[in-house]
Nucleic acid binder design. Structure first.
Length: 107
DNA sequence: CTATTGACGACAT
DNA sequence: CATGTCGCCAATA
């Protein structure tokens, strides 16, 4: 599977760069991430950006959730996302993040 | 250039 | 609380 060269748009780079700052055991939202990428209204576009996820294990894409505490999506399957989150000590109940406001990482 | 497509968000019902 | 509608944005066809 080699990809030759990985080319990212400026936007994607900004998003991924912001995302890698999110500490383990905490989560951020698409919206906050958009803010971190200096495009406060591009939450949707952020979802598309992380979906490409070029640096799979390198960047914690699983720590990105919805602004209402919902899980959101995941390229490898939402269920997988939940598993990993649990592994980091984040509890998901009824498709929602417990203590969401406490562990939310804001930019 | 226009149209379509989403791992979204806010608000109304 | 669950759904639906509309607005937003960048990437792609």
């Amino acid at each position: 599977m080699k990809d030759g060269k990985i080319i990212l748009t400026f936007f994607e780079m900004a998003v991924l760069d912001a995302l890698k700052k999110v500490p383990r055991g905490r989560v951020t939202t698409y919206k906050e991430l958009a803010k971190g990428a200096d495009r406060p209204r591009a939450a949707r576009a952020v979802g598309n950006a992380v979906n490409k996820n070029p640096f799979a294990p390198k960047i914690p894409c699983h720590r990105v959730v919805k602004s209402d505490g919902g899980i959101g999506g995941y390229a490898a399957g939402v269920n997988k996302k939940i598993d990993i989150l649990k592994k980091e000590g984040i509890i998901v109940k009824n498709n929602k993040i417990l203590n969401f406001k406490k562990i939310l990482f804001k930019f």
